[in-house]
Nucleic acid binder design. Structure first.
Length: 287
DNA sequence: CGGGACTCCTGCCAGC
DNA sequence: TGCTGGCAGGAGTCCC
């Protein structure tokens, strides 16, 4: 499930493929993903040159030479595959040209194909279709319905224990839910929120507003450290997430509590449901 | 307004 | 064995 580190990894993988290239054509295999594609989506992308890529929360923003921006959210299962007809043998190109293979552009869940001016094809695959693509002008970004109201980046300068204290003040919602609230912190998902809570030693059901400042300091530190470490390991590969070059991320080997039976100290891990999401926690280590 | 439930979607797997 | 129901979850929307 792509969260901040996975989205960052995908963006970094796509950068060298896309930046400086022009989009020769866009093939849409269906009318939309979570939302319909915007009017004239493919036609408006055609001929545009990619200037740069950036990430905001779990969104990838592809900046184009006409001031517009392709916005992509990977949802639960979105992934990009790069097909290069000129790639040498043993490159991923050969494997993925198998008929119907994931990302080949002909599979049932290959929804969008970007053809670049150098012949490279970038295929967007998303079997659950929770992903999003939209096209907006850079002047519209601040007011865009999906981007406005998004909170601070955990790796950014605005994020701190004081920030958490201010935003969690008088909040009765369980801490786990507060960590997942994109209007407060941008980019955390279920896996990282679960891991951050364990490493912080805080029970996931603690009301967010009742956490002392020292504990918020620990929480803030882990909220920075965990995604930072995960980015360094190219994200977490649980089931659906793959890097652009199809190598798996490495952070799943460092998960301490998510989908574990026992915590690193040997205590039995409990699983509960919060807001429809599974939370794993250690009743001994997390108070 | 805050918080929780519901919804979208498909693949997978436990259980009958 | 084969079907079915439940589960997985990001995030918008709806309701109390």
């Amino acid at each position: 499930m792509p969260e901040l580190p996975e989205v960052e990894t995908v963006m970094r993988g796509l950068g060298p493929i896309l930046v400086g290239r022009s989009i020769a054509a866009v093939e849409l295999r269906r009318a939309g993903l979570r939302f319909p594609f915007p009017a004239g989506f493919a036609a408006r992308l055609k001929g545009r040159r990619v200037v740069s890529l950036q990430r905001r929360a779990k969104y990838i923003l592809v900046n184009l030479d006409d001031g517009h921006c392709l916005l992509v959210h990977l949802g639960m299962t979105g992934r990009f595959t790069v097909l290069d007809e000129n790639a040498p043998p043993n490159n991923l190109g050969e494997f993925y040209y198998e008929q119907g293979a994931v990302g080949a552009g002909s599979g049932p869940h290959d929804h969008v194909v970007f053809l670049l001016d150098n012949g490279v094809r970038v295929v967007y695959t998303d079997h659950r279709r929770f992903g999003v693509m939209d096209l907006l002008h850079e002047n519209e970004m601040a007011g865009h319905k999906l981007l406005k109201g998004i909170g601070v980046e955990p790796l950014g300068n605005e994020f701190s224990a004081d920030f958490l204290a201010a935003r969690f003040r008088k909040k009765s919602a369980p801490l786990k839910a507060a960590l997942l609230d994109q209007r407060i912190i941008a980019g955390l998902g279920n896996i990282y929120a679960t891991e951050i809570l364990y490493r912080s030693g805080i029970h996931p059901e603690t009301p967010a507003g009742e956490i002392s400042l020292p504990r918020l300091s620990k929480l803030a530190a882990e909220t920075k450290a965990v995604p930072k470490q995960a980015i360094a390991m190219n994200g977490t590969s649980i089931s659906d997430f793959r890097r652009v070059d199809d190598k798996s991320g490495g952070f799943q080997n460092f998960l301490q509590i998510y989908q574990k039976d026992t915590c690193p100290k040997g205590h039995e891990v409990k699983k509960i449901k919060q807001g429809g999401r599974g939370t794993f926690f250690c009743p001994v280590c997390q108070k």
